[in-house]
């Protein structure tokens, strides 16, 4: 028995680690917390059907789904374990919408009466109160706060340009788009530019208003050929390390290296280009 006890403990710990963070009883005293249902990448079709593709495009490991209830009040907690903090942020950035308020001081979070949504580490967490009662909304916030604390880990860090550089005004509107479906969801106006390119990373933000409205993007491809195609479609096939005009798409483009380009368009483009070396 003595031999098996540590082994058993290890197995339990392993199982707990692979299950990922969950809502537990002490998070919501007086509430009934269901056992989680887990769905792997392939099972995701069973859980969210056609919506699965977007998660799979970013890289998805599993989702846990729990129902918390107290009398007539109910919450749904879904925790998506993605392959990386970038992937979790990417989905969050698509689903964030026009977010009125952050939650719990987390950078990539949004609090609304109908949902709390945040990306922390490789996890995307959604807490949905099924009714509008204060009891339910309070419980949703408690569950979300407990998970935020429990998950910990490295959050997605945008490039220096968006963090504290010239593009920092666009930080809060930053989206990370990692494939065609992400593009169709969040930025269909770029569909033609990236058509047929299956693997790309696009960090995109639109910020400013009126005459200062500006679009900024960092485009990364897996091959030089793909970047050549994109620059050709922009009308900047010869773009190099200096900013040049994108004759077909408007704006300015700069090729940082074989597989990376920067793009600016709109009221602040000229000014920003001078500050983006």
């Amino acid at each position: 028995m003595k031999i098996f006890t540590p082994l058993l403990l290890l197995l339990v710990l392993h199982a707990s680690a692979s299950a990922g963070p969950l809502v537990i009883g002490s998070d919501l005293p007086g509430w009934k917390i269901s056992d989680p249902d887990f769905y792997s990448a392939k099972e995701l079709y069973g859980y969210i059907n056609g919506g699965a593709e977007l998660y799979l495009e970013y890289g998805f490991r599993q989702v846990s789904a729990q129902r918390c209830s107290r009398g007539d009040h109910e919450l749904q907690v879904d925790i998506y374990q993605m392959v990386s903090p970038e992937a979790a942020f990417g989905i969050w950035s698509i689903l964030r919408g026009d977010c009125p308020e952050q939650f719990g001081g987390a950078d990539w979070s949004c609090l609304r009466p109908e949902q709390i949504l945040f990306a922390r580490g490789p996890y995307l967490v959604s807490v949905v109160p099924y009714d509008r009662a204060k009891t339910t909304r309070d419980a949703a916030e408690k569950a979300a706060a407990a998970l935020l604390k429990r998950i910990g880990g490295r959050d997605f860090r945008p490039s220096e340009l968006f963090r504290s550089g010239p593009l920092s005004p666009g930080r809060n509107a930053l989206q990370f788009l990692h494939g065609p479906l992400a593009l169709q969801n969040a930025l269909p106006s770029w569909d033609d530019l990236l058509d047929g390119i299956q693997r790309f990373d696009l960090y995109h933000s639109a910020f400013g208003t009126g005459s200062r409205k500006t679009e900024a993007a960092i485009i990364e491809t897996k091959t030089k050929r793909d970047m050549d195609r994109i620059l050709g479609r922009l009308g900047a096939a010869d773009a190099g390390r200096e900013w040049s005009k994108a004759s077909k798409h408007g704006g300015l483009v700069k090729r940082k290296n074989a597989k990376t380009a920067w793009y600016l368009k709109g009221g602040q483009a000229e000014d920003l280009s001078r500050r983006m070396k």
Binding site: N49, G50, G51, I94, L95, G97, E114, Q115, S126
Partner: peptide, 12 residues
């Protein structure tokens, strides 16, 4: 209008 076809309540 967004987040579909799954149910994302902020867009319902």
């Amino acid at each position: 209008y967004h987040g579909g076809p799954g149910a994302n309540p902020q867009f319902i």
